[in-house]
Amino acid sequence: MITRALRHPSFVVGLAITLLVVLVAVIAAFWTPHDATAMRISARLRPPSATNWFGTDQFGRDVLSMLMMGARNALLVGVVAVGIGLSIGVALGMVAATREGSLLDEAIMRICDFTFAFPAVLTAILILTFLGPGLVNAIIAIGIFNIPVFARIARGAALQVMARDYIRAARAAGRTTFGILYRHVLPNITGILIVQASVQFALAILAEAGLSYLGIGTQPPNPSWGRMLNDSQTFLSQASYLAIFPGAAIALAVLGFNLLGDGLRDVLDPKSKER
């Protein structure tokens, strides 16, 4: 499977970009070229140079350092928001699948449909107006919207798996419903969930950037790609690089995770199960 994956172009490119973003975020945890929040008014709006590779912003902060810290921020949002969606969503989806057709199943799935009916970012804005702006609340708002996505996918995939004879054999062996879900269903739907997780990861990064752009996501002085974009608007004619670099960072990260998801979908496709 690994050799097949490494021959898949979008998987390789997606993985490379993703690893780059992760690497940058990890480095940023220990080291950035400059302090990402240190202002130097004397050095404001400097174009890219040897000391400030990506230039400085209107407060003289180093753009590269801010981008690196922004990568950390984006990954944090992605990991936690997708984590919330995965853990709660998959649990709900699998429970719904074991009780297919029951009132509980109907209730879970109709609530999912209900949340699907609203545009995710718009409702995230609504949630943030109630909870108040901030990174943690933004993560919660994005996480909530990941729950129905995973619930629906987990339910559908679990239903397929649960129709197989090995599930009957497990029941005949005396396994409990929970044991069957944990030992048989979950391992067999992991591939689908991983694919969806990488797509949701990209969407989470985009959503955080959008919310921060609107000023209700990550709060200053913590760097966020979305807020950097917003800040750059005023100086677009003088210092266009202020918009280009965070914009490119968002595009690159989202592209990376999407390509990775596409690649994984092909590699993990159950229809070509040669390992």
């Binding site: 004879d165 054999a169 005949a172 062996a173 005396g174 067999n188 199960k273």
Partner: peptide
């Protein structure tokens, strides 16, 4: 019921569907 299941076992028709591919 679970406690009594070991006394009655089954062999299924399709050997491709009756073994968990991930186990």
């Amino acid at each position: 019921l679970r406690a009594r299941r070991h006394g009655i076992q089954m062999v299924f028709q399709d050997p491709y569907g009756s073994l968990d591919p991930r186990m």
